[in-house]
């Protein structure tokens, strides 16, 4: 246990993977919050300012402009939004949801890493400085121990989600039936053949898949099957129920489970240094 902990705490690697997560999370923050803080919706000066700061910081974070500061400001805004505005002041929308919590945690953990060392405007500036005779840019290499927290957070979402569904109501399919009735009119509106059987199958498959994702994502051989299954699962949820940005956040976070060296090598293969074209 102690050796494992030492390995995690001393974990270092390529920063390209966390740069992609930084880019995606910045854009997901836009998708989640920008419209909800638009001036035409809310004229309160405090809310307008909060929205402007969050959306600007998230944009800078996405494109890697003053990445470290932008990610830290985004993280602070999200913690303030969730815990103070959302929970403390009771302004549940748009802050207090499972998917916004996962987004918040991911951004907080990203803020603990130098995500701007790769695929960023910061990197581009550093390379340009070097071309003009300035110092060499810092290598695309950094401590990655918070990446373990990002992985753990996603695994916990699946694990506790599966725990919540491990009951007769869900496994019998009746909970899914109720959900469909609620969102699709009534039982009379849902006229699929074998609907009840389909819902039972859906209930069992969901729980099995969620336990599988919670534990299996940590193992490379299982990932080959679980990630496509998870993406299909999230697509089905996206197309069936209102889930906000939960599906896209989860699918992007699968990316965190690959080895940083593997992700770095993908870039080498797909964008080789020789650009003779």
């Amino acid at each position: 246990m102690s050796r494992l902990l030492d390995r995690v705490l001393g974990w270092e690697g390529s920063t390209r993977q966390i740069a992609i997560l930084r880019f995606a999370m910045g854009l997901i923050i836009w998708a989640e919050y920008a419209q909800k803080h638009a001036a035409f919706r809310n004229h309160a000066p405090g809310d307008l300012l909060f929205g402007a700061v969050l959306v600007t910081a998230a944009g800078c974070m996405a494109f890697g402009l003053f990445s470290r500061v932008a990610t830290a400001v985004s993280a602070l805004c999200m913690v303030y939004g969730y815990h103070y505005l959302g929970v403390h002041l009771g302004q549940k929308e748009p802050f207090v949801h499972a998917h916004t919590y996962v987004l918040m945690c991911t951004v907080v953990f990203l803020a603990m890493m130098p995500t701007g060392r790769s695929l960023s405007v910061d990197r581009w500036w550093a390379l340009r400085r070097e071309e003009r005779g300035g110092p060499a840019p810092v290598p695309e290499w950094a401590p990655l121990w918070p990446l373990a927290l990002i992985r753990l957070q996603l695994a916990l979402v699946y694990f506790w989600g599966a725990i919540d569904k491990t009951n007769v109501a869900f496994l019998s399919g009746s909970r899914l039936q109720q959900m469909y009735y609620y969102y699709y009119g009534s039982h009379e509106g849902v006229r699929l053949p074998f609907f009840d059987e389909l819902m039972t199958l859906g209930g069992i498959a969901t729980v099995v898949l969620e336990y599988g994702l919670a534990f299996g994502l940590w193992f490379a051989p299982a990932r080959k099957w679980l990630i496509p299954a998870g993406i299909i699962f999230h697509l089905m949820i996206y197309l069936s129920f209102p889930v906000g940005t939960f599906s896209v956040t989860s699918c992007v976070l699968y990316f965190a489970f690959f080895a940083p060296a593997t992700v770095h090598a993908w870039f080498g293969r797909m964008a080789p240094a020789d650009t003779s074209v």
Partner: peptide, 21 residues
Amino acid sequence: NQHMREFRMYGTRARRTCQVH
């Protein structure tokens, strides 16, 4: 305590739904 996060599916939606034939 809402500061602690739970991961439940739609705990506040379709809490009481009836099927009527």
